[in-house]
Amino acid sequence: MSKKYKLKRLLVRRYQILAAILFILAAGLVLLPKYKKNEGIAPDLLMKKMISSERYISTDLLADRLVNQDPSVLLIDTRTEKEFQNYALPNAINIPLKKLLDEDVNGYINQDIYDVIFYSNDNFYADQAWIIGSRLGYTNLYVLEGGLNKWFHTIINPELPDETMPEEAFELYSFRKAAGMYFGVGTSEQKTINKPIKKTITVKKKKKRVAEGGC
């Protein structure tokens, strides 16, 4: 009997109870300790992207895309301006790592039309630029694997494969040589032209002999 009575009393007061819950929840939002939220993508997603090798683009693939004049490639040189003036990949834009977050260059990195490919002398600066950009949630960012050092060793000055290596190695070699020529560097082999050795044919003149014998 008393249980029923209690329930009845509770039901009569149901709207007050619901209103109190609403008030407590709203007050809870105000009283909760505040913390600074991370901007950009979540840490676990960033880790997943970092571990994946998809962020690297090989020098061969980049050369192929440049030779075919792929319009979606946007090369960004993360080295210093002086180094950029010395040597840079064709059509690259120089954004030194320190200036990466400047507002006037943000438009190059924070977009989803081009494939942004960072490069430096090695992976080092380019990887840092990639992490900063990806952390902020920018998409289509890539790193040139091995940087300019590898570019030099593979495209500009490719290594001649051994005779025992498979056919693919030779095909790759000839592609790299051709790409190297496209980027304006001739390999030493192309430069030396073997001149055909002139064969001197010595024609021996027959000595006029005195007719021998006779009738």
């Binding site: 609403l22 008030f23 709203a26 909760l32």
Partner: peptide, 18 residues
Amino acid sequence: ISPYWIIFIFTIIALVAF
């Protein structure tokens, strides 16, 4: 103003309106 305060004030307005 912090959104949490706006929600709190809005909730009080709602309860008063009810």
